[in-house]
Design a protein around this nucleic acid. Structure first.
Lengths: 348, 348
DNA sequence: CTGAAAGCGCTTACAG
DNA sequence: CTGAAAGCGCTTACAG
């Protein structure tokens, strides 16, 4: 491994001249200085010089490392697969400013496990982004442990350092589309109604609001209990006048699977509209009528917010907390799974 | 921020006594030493002491940081969504030995971009895991840049430092299941046959081998061109004697979507078997008959292999290259999408 | 503008 | 077993 010292020795100058040249600062316009700088650069190149991240960190007091907290672990590897899109966006935003991202699992924050995770045990991270639905004790622990936290998609909502999807709007967009398509009855399928993650509460609130405005009947179907009598009851109430509004793609799939056992297809035999999707949906289920959120962008923006709150991070207004943001959803008719009750089968 | 020095001052001892106590080494059994150690621990606790990762790295010469190279980026955020499962497994394996994982995108390895990515520009990583299908120039660049590389799921296959799924076995398992279920004709759907990623080549090789052994006709359908005349031709050849063997879940979904437009369902009107899945499939499409690979485990094992190849990583046999490994697939009947041609509809 | 010195926080030798 | 010293690779003051 080559160091500044080594380059300095080979070039016959001092270490900090090398440092100056390599960092692009303070090279004089004098002819000999320019020549020397060239030689230094060449030697550094020959030796394959790369700065030592640790040495830089120890001097600057900043590690340029950020953590992202997610729920996934060995026993719940995919409890929130969509997190991946946000992680990729986050990574891109951080990388642009020289920051590096690493993953922290919620389970690593448990008291008994804290000592196992070097990211928690040592001074390693300049800040963290908490992603999605987190237990109360996790929120507290993160606030205690890190000076800089961005709450992305979590139940924490403050004037600063939070970023969320506009979930009520998602419910409203989905329900309005249903009304406009002419459906007379709505079935809401999700796991929770008025508790849990803010997305559960607000998507349902948006749907309910639109339904009431238009005098439309809405029944609730708990998607977690899709097997047995209840599933049959649901399926018996499916018809061309009825639209199922699904909390997410997972619930939408369950409805389709259950319908299929009775020979019913979405779009044709009943309407199906989903309140949320991800980029995967576009490739795996493009025909789904849905509200779409850009989770990659959410991650990217969360990165911007965190960098803004970090002093000396190089972005504009660095060092001041970032005002909270809300991400808008977008209505997508899809391929589609909701033609409305007046749909006529066309021979192909 | 509290340092060893600060604790030492408060406790009236020297810095390295504090270091000794906190690292759990060399505390004598003498009564006064034990008392003192207790006091030091208490002070460290009160001050919320956390070791500085950079300082430790600079002394030990190891950063305890690992990179994982993936293809995903802003323009292809989900070109390989399944990578997430392996990343989570990798993260778990590394974390157990105090290592931290960060993400490197293939695009960050491009010459013009190298300088942008601190992970490449600086001495930051002790080693990397290359995940999935990588262009030749990426393989070369990684080998040149890093002393320790594990090739996971890539086209690189050497006696050491490589880990792969047994893809030929996957093709064989899928095709044998089809034969055992009584299907007479097979349709293979994937994008490539004899070139590209080793999974393309070997899954197809396994299927072909079994088909030939049993005198079964196999036709190939390029899933990338599923729209238009070709799709119609495919659909016309679907019937109860025929099974579609899909390269992956994505291709399986396309077949189902195309079939649906003609009112055909997998399992009932034709057979559908998939050569690969992921943990997501279990929740999103449990009825799919398939070969299953544990990508989380693949990541976890790749972590073990990398740690073994790193000197001083704390695992057994550290410092010696890890022999290459092959991960087995497992046959899953699923819910199912392949009952065989003799399936009789049962009233529900 | 360049060089010698000091120091970031820690650990690894080496004396007492 | 404990303390004073040296040093990891770099950068930030301070002299020449």
């Amino acid at each position: 491994m080559s160091t500044l010292q080594l380059i300095a020795k080979k070039a016959g100058v001092s270490a900090q001249t090398v440092s100056n040249v390599l960092s692009g600062r303070g090279v004089s316009k004098r002819r000999d200085a320019i020549e020397r700088a060239k030689r230094i650069l060449q030697i550094a190149d020959e030796l394959g010089y790369r700065p030592d991240a640790a040495a830089r960190a120890i001097r600057s007091g900043r590690t340029l490392q950020i953590g992202v907290v997610i729920r996934n672990d060995r026993y719940h590897p995919l409890c929130h697969q969509l997190a991946f899109e946000s992680i990729l966006g986050l990574n891109e935003g951080l990388l642009e400013q020289g920051y590096v991202l690493s993953i922290i699992r919620v389970m690593d924050l448990e008291s008994e496990r804290m000592a196992q995770s070097r990211a928690m045990r040592e001074n390693l991270l300049d800040g963290v982004v908490a992603l999605s639905y987190l237990p109360d004790w996790v929120e507290k622990r993160l606030s205690d442990h890190f000076e800089h936290v961005i709450w992305a998609d979590s139940n924490v909502w403050l004037p600063e350092n939070c970023i969320r999807r506009d979930e009520k709007e998602a419910g409203i967009l989905a329900a309005k589309a249903a009304v406009n398509l002419g459906y007379k009855k709505m079935i809401w399928t999700g796991e929770r109604l008025d508790s849990g993650h803010y997305s559960d509460i607000q998507r349902w609130a948006g749907v309910k609001e639109v339904a009431q405005q238009h005098g439309c009947e809405v029944t609730h179907f708990n998607g977690a209990e899709a097997v047995g009598d209840y599933a049959l009851k649901l399926l018996e109430s499916l018809n061309r006048q009825t639209v199922v509004l699904a909390y997410d793609v997972y619930h939408a799939r369950r409805i389709v699977a259950a319908g299929q056992t009775l020979g019913m297809s979405p779009g044709y035999d009943y309407g199906l509209i989903c309140c949320d999707d991800s980029q995967t949906t576009q490739s795996h289920w493009p025909s789904l009528s849905r509200v779409s959120f850009d989770r990659y962008e959410l991650g990217y923006q969360a990165a911007q917010m965190l960098l803004q709150s970090l002093p000396g991070s190089g972005v504009p207004r660095a060092g001041r907390p970032a005002p909270s943001r809300m991400i808008s959803g977008q209505w997508f008719l899809g391929g589609c799974t909701a033609w409305g009750p007046d749909y006529q089968t066309v021979s192909q």
